[in-house]
Design a protein around this nucleic acid. Structure first.
Length: 1059
RNA sequence: GGGCCUGUAGCUCAGGCGGUCAGAGCACUCCCCUGAUAAGGGAGGGGUCCCUGGUUCGAGUCCAGGCAGGCCCA
């Protein structure tokens, strides 16, 4: 026997109980044990950092991460779900810096790296308890006890191993990277920090400089710059390959000189009269050589010629850009492409180095005026002014930032660009445009991975360098390092911590010159940590070789779209370079979570939605369901407590009440699905066959949608089914549950609804694991000891194609539509539904539809409370057509003759005119001596219902009700009215649905007659053992005096037996 | 500045290939129904389908250019 289902369900409380059940019965663990022998479905958890509280957007990604492993597990796959924690990186350091009130790296050094890193280490698990609580509460099944941790020695050793592989293949190299740099603080700034310090309307020099051509005396490239101090670092000039350039002649202090610049910028750049002497596209300038303005540094490479670059602007300047690879990111990139020298003329404090003799030791910005003066004196300045633009300053100290080349380690990913692109094409991205667009474009423009960071809290770059001869080695394991250390006679530090500062103290002898090998100071980009997780989570290749092979690559990963160039890239790049393989086959890139108004959530705006609030009010299932179904995965989502509340009302409660309805009656009838034989589906009524057809089509579609990683479509489809089930199947089947006989029809309705609910519990298990479990536990596990005790240990349902009858589904849709139309007609007639009517007539789209409606007539007539059904071919069977002249058309045309025409038309039979006009013919009317033609466009045909009929129309469909009531019908209506009152009383008296009663009544004669005529019906409907025409005694538990159609009724009920 | 996404009723969203596509569900008003229901049914109010051009016999639907919001990258 099923457990009774409470009328008011408290989802959050229900979920807590189920959490307890899962824990006690080890359901998650057992779902894993059970599938051990199954095929592998590989999921990777993108590791979060637990130094902040988890937010609602984490619930989003975790909901999606949970769904597919659950689904696949139900299909028999073995899906290892290992948690992970990201623990390194600049964000962690910045948090600690903020706590300690530090403003620069100097503060950290002074504080001590060991102590600083210790604080970092402690901070990254600060909120781990909160993460675990939330993870468990939203039913994200993942193994957090055995989570991989990026700061562990094992993890780091695997990362070292990877880097060593790259090193051995020559993929690791040191070069320069241009970074935004604060010369006062002596540190590069992250993008985020740069964004904090932009100042508009910053004044800088605007200088037009002449670069003399080497082989053509008196000819110059005209170049614009706002940073004269970078000119000593010039290595090349860049032009736009497609733009048109001109050579102009101009008098300059009496001597003619020729200038080259972009045609589009002639007017903006030039002063005074000029004459164009030549015209050419930019690409023809490429390779031309010029004499450098300054030669402070020796050149190791070819320099000082023209190159082409698509980024050259034609909006301002001259269309010729001065390239200083040391002082601009684009310059550096271009320099790398053309192998230009990197002329570092400035020291880390922002001052010119000694070689720049005229301005040595001077802060570069202060040197600007002197450089301009120098150019002026040498006749190389065309024009100097000032320029207002937006420029970044250090957010801490207000010093203007310099873009400055710093020595940095790189991974040569560009060598694998084609493979990165090709392998990406084999990944299925959801939504696809992220893969093709954002990620694909990003790969197309791949630049080498800048790996190193001049920071403290991260995986140390395992490169050791000889202090004397510069020999370098990359260490690939701790054993290797230890062996070298001990071979040199040094002590291996115990316990071993590969972090700074300890690792920096590990030294050994150079195999070339015997001098001291010492580690380079950098740590690595934290994105490399997480991108290495397929390898490093298993401490591969030092351990778990078999497991690694089994768990690589992933079938599925899922994160927010902001991870595109973060984790998605680092996973992809490392897997491609290391194994020439993808790291993941399917990836869902989730849209952002916004607040109710579509604004980004932020602490400063105060619009952050607390996941716990939503969970406490509505439950985790409602929140999950909302996230799955509100929009497709890649779309942005708005969230608020209210929006999730809608989900509870429209979906969760509908489902719950359907379930409750079933259990209520199954208990009353003692329905046991195992002992009551299920009638063959073919022998069940059409309504049953219909909902089962819908059910099996649903299984099919949900399965297909999940296979294509589309939970939104799957969820919406389930919601539509639940609506059909509740508001049509159950609604139309209620009487079958109420009746007393336990016949085949009753068995059919129970088995049908039971199958629907049980199947729903399976289909819903990956989406709303708690509610699905509650249904399953009561409907299946409770009555069948052989069944798995949890829905999450059960199998995903298989659709039975034999049950699917598309035609029946269409016919039922038509029936539902006609029911709406019929109810609309009743409404138009203003006859309440409780009053039975004799007849309804439908017009449908042809004989086939008529047949279909006939087959389902019972369902339809029952819904409409009408006795019989006929069909109309023409509306004229229930309505008379009336001709209405379009006076707005005929008036202007006929003028004063209009009344005569009208009179003449009135004299003709309307139906004949209408038929003629229908055929597209015109009707000729004789007016006086004249013939007037009236066409279809001149009239409008309106239908007036014939007496007794009321109809409504929708597209091709018509429903017409015959409104005349016989005495018999009227009595029946009254009887139903009385039933309704008695039911009200039962409810008011708080009787149980099956309680037996005695009903007393007194009524006006006509009403009494109706009650007497339908006494058996009234008794059956109201479970009245007796229906007594006498004044209710004082003992009745509820009593009412009512007026029905002007007649009075006094009625009272008394319970005589518990149901 | 570049790439990508989004912009349809007060709110949340549907609207393959251009031709009843101006819709659904919430919310609101009136009426109806109710032994599962915080529900359901009917009717109604409410929209220049972001704007401007273009292609077409015909465009939320295709193209171009804007505007607004978002993300990522400069």
């Amino acid at each position: 026997m099923f457990e009774p289902v409470p009328a008011r369900v408290n989802f959050p409380q229900l979920e807590e109980e189920i959490l307890k059940f899962w824990k006690e019965r080890r359901i998650f663990e057992r779902s894993m044990e059970q599938t051990k022998g199954g095929p592998r479905y590989v999921f990777y958890e993108g590791p979060p950092t637990a130094n902040g509280l988890p937010g609602i957007h984490h619930v989003l990604s975790r909901a999606f991460k949970d769904l597919f492993p659950r689904y696949k597990t139900m299909r028999g796959y073995y899906c290892l779900r290992r948690g992970g924690w990201d623990t390194h990186g600049l964000p962690v350091e910045l948090e600690i810096e903020k706590e300690l009130g530090f403003t620069s790296k100097v503060d950290i050094e002074r504080y001590g790296v060991a102590a600083f890193n210790q604080r970092c280490r402690e901070s990254v698990f600060r909120y781990v308890k909160e993460w675990e609580n939330l993870t468990e509460r939203i039913a994200f099944w993942i193994d957090l006890k055995d989570a991989y941790i990026t700061l562990s020695n094992e993890y780091i050793e695997s990362v070292w191993w990877i880097l060593r592989q790259f090193w051995d293949r020559g993929l690791l190299y040191q070069s320069y990277k241009v970074v935004p740099y604060c010369p006062r603080c002596g540190t590069p700034l992250s993008d985020h920090e740069v964004a904090l310090g932009y100042r508009e309307d910053t004044e800088d020099p605007s200088v037009y400089v002449k670069f003399p051509l080497r082989d053509e005396e008196g000819t110059y490239f005209l170049v614009w710059t706002t940073t004269p101090w970078t000119l000593p670092g010039n290595a090349a000039l860049a032009v736009h390959p497609e733009a048109i350039y001109v050579m102009v002649e101009q008098e300059q202090d009496g001597t003619p000189e020729r200038l080259i610049l972009a045609e589009a910028l002639l007017e903006k750049a030039l002063k005074g009269a000029y004459r164009v002497v030549a015209r050419m596209p930019g690409r023809e300038l490429a390779g031309l050589r010029y004499r450098p303005l300054y030669t402070f540094l020796p050149l190791e490479k070819e320099a000082h010629y023209v190159v082409t670059a698509p980024f050259v602007s034609l909006e301002e300047g001259t269309g010729i850009v001065h390239i200083a690879p040391a002082f601009g990111a684009e310059d550096m990139q271009l320099g790398r492409e053309h192998d230009l020298p990197i002329l570092v003329t400035v020291d880390p404090r922002g001052r010119f180095i000694d070689e720049v003799t005229p301005w040595r030791g001077m802060f570069v910005k202060d040197a600007d005026p002197m450089i301009i003066e120098d150019l002026q004196r040498r006749g190389l300045l065309y024009f100097a002014g000032t320029y207002l633009h937006t420029y970044p300053f250090c957010w801490r100290c207000g010093t203007p930032l310099l873009y400055y080349a710093r020595a940095s380690w790189f991974i040569e990913t560009t060598r694998f660009k084609d493979r990165l692109v090709a392998l990406n094409k084999t990944i299925r991205w959801y939504p696809p445009q992220i893969g093709e667009g954002r990620f694909g474009n990003w790969l197309e423009n791949n630049v080498d991975w800048a790996l190193s960071r001049e920071r403290y809290w991260g995986i140390p770059l395992p490169i050791w360098e000889c202090a004397r001869c510069g020999h370098r080695e990359c260490i690939g394991s701790y054993a290797e390092l230890r062996q070298k250390v001990e071979a040199a006679g040094f002590r291996w530090p115990e316990p071993w911590d590969p972090h700074k500062p300890y690792v920096d103290e590990v030294r050994y002898r150079c195999e070339r010159c015997g001098d001291r090998m010492q580690r380079v100071p950098e740590v690595i980009d934290v994105w490399f940590d997480s991108g290495a997780m397929p390898v490093a989570q298993w401490h591969y290749p030092f351990e778990n070789q078999e497991l690694f092979r089994e768990q690589f690559p992933a079938d599925f990963i899922c994160e927010g779209v902001d991870q595109t160039r973060g984790w998605f890239y680092s996973l992809h790049a490392i897997a491609t370079l290391l194994f020439d393989s993808v790291a993941f086959k399917n990836v869902i890139s989730l849209g952002l979570v916004l607040d109710e108004k579509g604004q980004k959530m932020s602490k400063s705006r105060g619009n952050v939605v607390d996941p716990w609030e939503v969970i406490h009010v509505h439950g985790a299932d409602a929140l999950r369901w909302y996230f799955y179904t509100v929009s497709p995965p890649g779309q942005e989502r708005r969230i608020s407590v209210n929006l999730v509340g809608d989900v509870v009302r429209t979906f969760m409660l509908t489902l719950w009440n359907t379930y409750r309805f079933f259990v209520t009656y199954a208990r009353l009838d003692g329905f046991d699905p195992r002992t009551v034989p299920a009638p063959p589906v073919g022998e069940r009524p059409p309504l049953d066959r219909w909902i089962l057809s819908e059910l099996h089509a649903l299984i099919q579609e949900v399965t297909e949608s999940l296979e294509s990683y589309d939970p939104a479509t799957a969820g919406r489809r389930i919601a539509a089914f639940v609506d059909d089930l509740s508001n049509w199947y159950v609604r139309r089947s209620r009487r079958r549950f109420w009746k007393n006989e336990n016949d085949a029809d009753k068995a059919a309705v129970y088995h049908t609804l039971y199958e629907c609910l049980v199947t729903l519990s399976h289909l819903l298990a990956p989406f709303i694991p708690f509610t699905a479990e509650a249904l399953y536990r009561n409907l299946v596990a409770r009555v069948n000891p052989e069944a798995p005790e949890s829905v999450h240990l059960s199998r995903w349902p298989e659709p039975d194609p034999a049950r699917i009858d598309k035609r029946l589904q269409e016919e039922m849709r038509l029936t539902m539509r006609l029911a709406s139309l019929g109810l609309a007609a009743r409404n138009a007639a203003r006859i309440r539904v409780r009053q039975p009517l004799a007849r309804i007539a439908f017009r449908v789209r042809g004989p086939e539809e008529e047949e279909a409606v006939r087959r389902l007539a019972d369902v339809l007539l029952d819904e409409l409370n009408i006795k019989s059904l006929t069909f109309l071919r023409e509306l004229t069977e229930v309505a008379d057509p009336e001709l209405h002249l379009r006076l707005d058309r005929l008036g202007p045309r006929l003028g004063a003759r209009l009344p005569l025409v009208r009179e003449a038309l009135d004299g003709l039979p309307a139906s004949a005119i209408i038929r003629a006009l229908h055929r597209g013919e015109t009707v000729a009317v004789q007016v006086d001596e004249e013939v007037v033609e009236v066409g279809p466009e001149d009239v409008e045909i309106r239908y007036r219902p014939k007496p007794g009929w009321v109809f409504v129309e929708e597209n091709d469909y018509v429903a017409a009700v015959w409104t005349e009531l016989t005495d018999e019908l009227r009595k029946e209506g009254l009887a139903r009215e009385v039933v309704r009152r008695i039911q009200e009383l039962r409810k008011r008296a708080d009787f149980d649905v099956a309680d037996r009663i005695v009903t007393y009544y007194q009524a006006d004669p006509a009403l009494a007659e109706a009650i007497a005529a339908h006494a058996a019906y009234i008794q059956a409907e109201t479970l009245s053992e007796q229906l007594l025409a006498m004044a209710p005694p004082p003992s009745v538990e509820a009593i009412e005096r009512a007026t029905i159609d002007g007649m009075t009724l006094l009625v009272g009920v008394l319970r005589v037996a518990k149901g």
